[in-house]
Amino acid sequence: MKIKEGFMLREVAGFFLVVPLGAKASFQGMMKLNATGKLLWERLTAGADEAALIAALLEAYEVDEATAKADVADFIAHLERIEVLED
């Protein structure tokens, strides 16, 4: 599980944006992430698996393991739905 090639994550005006680098001349497909989303995106880019993502959330935030697991599962499900992940 990893993020496909061709995305750029940048902070703009205090918000985290993921922009597809593809050839389209519009910004369609751009995503806005919150701080948690940004952390998970960066870890995924660095090759983290699901267990590592959960550990990252537990380390960064005061959440219980069940919440962290659910948040990571939601995030991954969302990325799969919009076809950003590959094996």
């Binding site: 750029m8 940048r10 703009v12 944006l17 922009v19 680098l21 389209k24 001349a25 519009s26």
Partner: peptide, 12 residues
């Protein structure tokens, strides 16, 4: 949207 990472980075 510019084509290429350098242009997009500049725009952002």
């Amino acid at each position: 949207k510019p084509s290429g990472a350098l242009g997009i980075d500049g725009l952002l």
